[in-house]
């Protein structure tokens, strides 16, 4: 029982750190790039000029974070319909619950 428990807890921790801490960190990077790209008062360091390249980078961060949210919704909805999201093929795919 304890062994099963720690196996499950360990997996939850890894998934939690990757998605629950990694995605917010990515979002934070987006905020930072966006601020740096905006320039002026958006940063506390001596102001830089607006930079479209940084803004584009910020957009990439936000899009990946948004995809993670879509993945989250998919997990919720799928489990309600007796399906689960499988990561066996790296890309998430829907399969029947085993």
């Amino acid at each position: 029982m304890l062994e099963l428990f720690f196996q499950a807890a360990w997996k939850v921790l890894v998934a939690g750190l990757v998605l629950g801490a990694g995605i917010p960190a990515l979002f934070a990077l987006g905020v930072r790039f966006s601020a740096a790209g905006t320039g002026g008062a958006a940063m506390t360091v001596p102001s830089s000029k607006p930079n479209p390249a940084l803004k584009a980078l910020a957009a990439v961060c936000f899009v990946i974070a948004a995809l993670a949210v879509v993945l989250g919704i998919t997990v919720v909805v799928a489990s309600g319909f007796g399906k689960m999201v499988s990561f066996d093929h790296v890309f998430p795919t829907l399969v029947d619950k085993g």
């Binding site: 939850v12 990757v18 629950g20 917010p24 989250g72 997990v75």
Partner: peptide, 19 residues
């Protein structure tokens, strides 16, 4: 944001793993 993301990730990962 950090708190709610952590909650969402832990809750979803757990229900995904049947925990």
């Amino acid at each position: 944001m950090a708190a709610e993301s952590a909650s969402a990730a832990v809750i979803l990962a757990s229900s995904h793993l049947g925990f």
